[in-house]
Amino acid sequence: MDFSRLHKYASPMHFYSWSLAVAPWLGIACAVLFVVGLAGGLFYAPPDYQQGESFRIIYVHVPSAWMSLFIYMVMAGAGALGLIWHVKLGDMIARASAPVGAWFTFLALATGSLWGKPMWGTYWVWDARLTSELILLFLYLGYIALQGAIEDRRTAARAGAILALVGTVNIPIVHYSVEWWNTLHQGPTVTKFDAPSIDTSMLIPLLVMSLAYTLYFCTIVLVRTRCEILEFERNTTWVKQRAAGVNAV
């Protein structure tokens, strides 16, 4: 296998150029999918037989919850690339992903809470899923706080990678312990959505929305990573030349 090519695309300078070309297309695809998914979810999908129209919040809620976990994995994976194989781009992607992931986690919690009010009669219950999502938000915030506290970007990225990896080992433990804790404490009985029991007309918009969210994340991370690259590499010749070029235009 030709690793030199891979290496080339992973170098910050090349990444900067190709992401500049790719990001707008991803953004357009994301916008189209958003429109299709929202139209499908808000207008074409039939109301739920039990929950009526309120169920439609799953089209923003469930993809956010998926993204919150997915982005944590991306962050830990990219951080590990930077930590173990010294791929600088990994450091930058990890750093760029964290706030996006934290916001998705917050969005999942907020939309879930808004849905909970009409359905469960309360904004918050100590349900296992809610609690582990909240802990996930704390993990993100700890990561961001650590990034903010270390001046040197390289050190910050590598320290963050260790924290993200410790968090990754911890996430399944948190998940199962919280689930067990909840059954022990006999929380309010919660009727959950069972993914397989959802009707196709409701499922398709959900999948489209998930794809839209994923593309949104990819687009934003490409843009944010470019910004990270400029700050990381501000003393290199190519960044200076590029900056000079932009100024000339």
């Binding site: 802990i135 704390f138 993990l139 706080a145 650590l146 911890n170 948190v174």
Partner: peptide, 8 residues
């Protein structure tokens, strides 16, 4: 950083 990891 540490308290969320202590929850389990």
């Amino acid at each position: 950083i540490i308290l969320p990891l202590y929850m389990p």
